[in-house]
Design a protein around this nucleic acid. Structure first.
Length: 419
DNA sequence: TCTGGGGTCCTAGGACCC
DNA sequence: TCTGGGGTCCTAGGACCC
């Protein structure tokens, strides 16, 4: 059996752990720049605040219902996630952390366990130790565990937030209940096509022929069908190094000058380099993109990306910044209002491999230099040491007007209790 | 005025090899 | 009339996830 443990309204719940006065009140969390809604408490969902909606369109509603609005506080969410995952890891030797708020546990050899009680024990411990509400679904396959989890979340009273699919009858009932667009792995495009075929539920979906699914949804769809039928096809996935790493941002205002974009791109490249070093990889290829604001009809639009093959693998801030500037020079055009840009690195090799070419050599001195830089920044705070071409005066700032404290990761933000 | 960020996998088609 | 057969690698684009 597989268990899927999912934190309810995770970001909103993290905020509420440290603000118990907000229990029962509508909360939303906004994306970077306070742009879009990325998390909602149940109360916020109930008053019809949609996921992904731009915050400026909702101001009226926020005021009307006294919605508590938070800027995204990722250090807090990351730390709370680690705490939850550490607890879950005690409940099975085989675990896959699927996302910041979800994990699969493989329950092999639990034949003589009462899984309902086991789930309840997990639920109680996470609630007691972290204050984060969770839902648990248990079933013979991952796709069915996802479905069971959905039921547990939808009917917390009836299920005690733990639901198990362990027989044919429950499986069929659940599949008939689940709308096809809510199936894990079926997105907007596929649901449209499926509905045109008169497929409206997960149950309808598994009645389709293999050949139709293969033709229209590739082997991915086929695997999903089997998993939903109860034939284990998707297994836990090993945690491995990332295959691409991105740092991208939407700017608070428009940028028109090359120098402004250059500073951002250098900072993004440095950030990618740091992430690369954290997983002991070097990249062999780098992409830079810039684009104008697609929502503005009144401005002329431009969007371009460029991929640069590096002459040698590297994870040095200095080298990546250099190549990123070269790339930017090739795509930058005067006269546009740029709103978003990013650097994405790909095609990784291990740090240990020192493949160089005959004519171009990487600078070996960067290796100890970057090591020192990481150590200093780790100790004294991010970006304490940065490249000269990066922003020195903090001109650039993200809009974060409703940021909560870093209750668990910053000494000066720890809650003080007055007795 | 204002609209997020970071990933994965698969396929088709082109370029190339012998 | 008729124009081989069997591969690999790479890339862009599309689908999906949180």
């Amino acid at each position: 059996m597989f268990a899927l443990i999912d934190c309810n309204n995770f970001y909103a719940s993290c905020e509420r752990v440290f603000r118990p006065d907000l229990n029962g009140k509508p909360i939303v969390v906004l994306s970077n720049n306070d742009g879009c809604v990325i998390a909602r408490s149940n109360e916020a969902k109930a008053i019809g605040i949609p996921m992904g909606a731009p915050a400026f369109e909702l101001e009226q509603k926020f005021k009307q219902y006294n919605v508590q609005v938070f800027s995204a506080n990722f250090p807090l969410y990351g730390d709370m996630s680690n705490r939850v995952m550490n607890i879950l890891a005690d409940y099975s030797p085989e675990m896959e952390v699927y996302s910041i708020d979800e994990a699969f546990l493989k329950l092999t050899g639990f034949d003589f366990f009462n899984l309902q009680e086991y789930g309840k024990a997990i639920h109680n411990k996470v609630t007691k130790w972290t204050g984060i509400p969770i839902s648990i679904g248990i079933a013979p396959t991952k796709a069915l565990a996802k479905l069971a989890n959905r039921i547990a979340k939808k009917f917390p009273q009836k299920t005690n937030s733990v639901y198990i699919i362990d027989n044919e009858e429950k499986k069929i009932k659940a599949l008939k209940w689940l709308k096809v667009e809510d199936v894990w792995g079926i997105g907007r495009q596929h649901s449209k096509r499926l509905q045109a075929q008169q497929v409206f539920t997960a149950y309808d979906f598994i009645q389709l022929s293999d050949s139709w699914i293969k033709r229209n949804m590739s082997v991915v769809g086929l695997r999903l069908k089997q998993d939903l039928q109860g034939i284990p096809t998707l297994d836990l996935e090993e945690i491995q190094n990332k295959k691409s790493i991105a740092t991208t941002r939407t700017f608070e205002t428009n940028y028109t000058k090359f120098e402004q974009l250059k500073e951002r791109i250098v900072t993004f490249a440095s950030s990618c380099a740091e992430k690369l070093r954290a997983q002991k990889s070097c990249c062999n290829s780098l992409m830079v993109f810039i684009r104008t604001n697609g929502h503005r009809q009144d401005l002329s639009q431009y969007s371009k990306n460029i991929v640069i093959k590096l002459p040698y693998p590297t994870n040095s801030n200095i080298e990546l910044a250099k190549f990123a500037i070269q790339a930017l020079k090739q795509i930058f055009k005067e006269g546009y209002h740029y709103k978003k840009a990013g650097v994405i690195v790909q095609d990784f090799t291990s740090e240990e491999i020192l493949q160089t070419t005959l004519f171009e050599k990487r600078n070996e001195q960067h290796i100890p230099l970057m090591k020192a830089l990481d150590k200093i920044n780790q100790h004294f705070g991010q970006q304490k040491i940065r490249l000269a071409s990066q922003d020195q005066k903090r001109i650039w700032k993200m809009k974060q007007e409703k940021l909560s404290l870093q209750y668990t990761t910053k000494l000066s933000d720890i809650i003080i209790i007055n007795v």
